[in-house]
Design a protein around this nucleic acid. Sequence first.
DNA 1: GAAACGTGATTGACATACTTAACGCTGGTG
DNA 2: CACCAGCGTTAAGTATGTCAATCACGTTTC
Lengths: 148, 148
Amino acid sequence: MTAARSAADEPASGPADETPAAASTPHNGAAPSGWTVQMNALGEFIRAQRQLANLSLREMASMTSVSNAYLSQVERGLHQPSLKVLHSIAAALQLSTEQLLAQGGWASGAREAAGGGGAEEAIRTDPRLSPEQRAALLGVYRSFVDPE
Amino acid sequence: MTAARSAADEPASGPADETPAAASTPHNGAAPSGWTVQMNALGEFIRAQRQLANLSLREMASMTSVSNAYLSQVERGLHQPSLKVLHSIAAALQLSTEQLLAQGGWASGAREAAGGGGAEEAIRTDPRLSPEQRAALLGVYRSFVDPE
DNA sequence: GAAACGTGATTGACATACTTAACGCTGGTG
DNA sequence: CACCAGCGTTAAGTATGTCAATCACGTTTC
């Protein structure tokens, strides 16, 4: 088990890598370059989910048949994964592809059902929780999403 | 190009083809070039939608900022488009990205019942929770239902 | 007939996704 | 202490996506 995993830490000391797209790119349209942000968000989400599932990069790599190195780069927003890879990742994390897509900002809808507010409903109807447990969990959840 | 290296030619296990509804797939004996089938279906769908909207390849190319040449290849299943391209196409055809994904067989669309175990899933994907909050809530939930 | 326009398909060059083999780091043994 | 064993990251290479230019064909119009 050995769960006890300290929070994610940053290597810090980042000498600010800048100028990813220099004067090169001979034929690049007027791409608004907003997509890098999306990639970053997606990557962070994937990393968070992976750590929640207590998986290492190599473990996940073996179950997705994608190399650990590439997974690392995807998680840090250095690359945009293809459908195949995205689908494999979703499967490994027991998520649906749409949920990943939504996190990346590519799917418009999807904010339904399991999305916003679904957690409260799910907690309330989970048969494995005792009444006290349910109440406790709901309290925590509400204190998170409703800071009143 | 060098080519000579046949390297990884089959992801083997692969994405375990779910195809919830499309059971009619011819199920090619062995050699699952599985994804080619998906690409083909996606391409045909895109072409059908395009023609339905009375658009030529070049027209659609100009509104998606994707070259007509590549669109042609995608429609005939010769290439697997990236997210960016797929998203542009969806926008041009006034469809949602998910609909295209579903046609390609990549979106499972399987929203499982809210019954047992749904809470964990719901907590993990609730967009209103920060990563730390998610981890905390999940930890509590797990300690309840899985007292190890 | 052959221009001049339209369409979709093909080619070759480059950018990007992805892999394999390392590296540096931290923690648990003897 | 040295020495594994695991982690995340980096470097160099191969495979694949994508584009600009071109082709080959079908339609008018002269």
